[in-house]
Amino acid sequence: MAGDYAYRKLGWRKVSVIAFDYGWGHEVAGGFQRVFEELGGQVIQKIWAPVNTADFGPYVASLKPEADGVLDVVTGAASIRLIGELRKAGVLDKKKVLAAGTATDETLLTALGDSALGVLGFLSWSQVLDTPENKRFVQRIKQMTKKDYVGFSAAINYGAAMWIAEAIRQVGGDVENKDKFFQTLRATEIKSSPRGPIKIDKYGHIVQNIYIRRVDKVGNLYQNTVIDTYPSVGQFWKYNPEEYLKQPIYSRDNPPCKYC
């Protein structure tokens, strides 16, 4: 859906991708490229950066100027370095950056500071997601941690715990009957978790909303403002699951970079 958003809503036609060189980076970049290029876009550059790259300078300096935007699939503390470098090198003044959501995780926002302002991301949650359930959740976590920011992991794992608790309730606490419990778990839908409605597809993977977020500064605090929502996104996007699963897994060279 990130490819869909980049092509339809951002109007990108040519994209540079910079991603961590391991399974997660390959998967996110691969899924993006497939959808983006099927719509008619072109990925013109793919840079695989080692996990925990210390200096993104050489990569950022070699980004192609003709790209409309940059897909950033880097997370954790390295994200601070990459986004800081993108800002210092002036890339963020010229074009937009769309990031795999945890690149601007709430726990990184202080360290990212002004450098991340305007960076877009896609993720299944935001601290400022405007639902009563999320507001209640955020407030309670803040009371416990006494911190301004609540991280993504706290929210999704809280949702997962709600799910298990609901399934236990439905089987009346009879978790010893494993088959029945797991069947119930698979059939359980949570309508109001902090991140919105969640359920599992028949392959055991989650179906959830994906939010497009933008880093803004409100008062003294940074936040991931939700600017768009893709409801009920599953792992196969709009593809047929059987056919999708027959594809080889995404890697450095799959899908191949036709327009590099």
């Binding site: 800081g84 210092k88 360290a111």
Partner: peptide, 21 residues
Amino acid sequence: DPFSLRGPAYFAQSVKLGGFT
């Protein structure tokens, strides 16, 4: 959580010299 030392404001800026940044 990771920290980043922001330093003085000019650390975020660049100087231009002969067309290079």
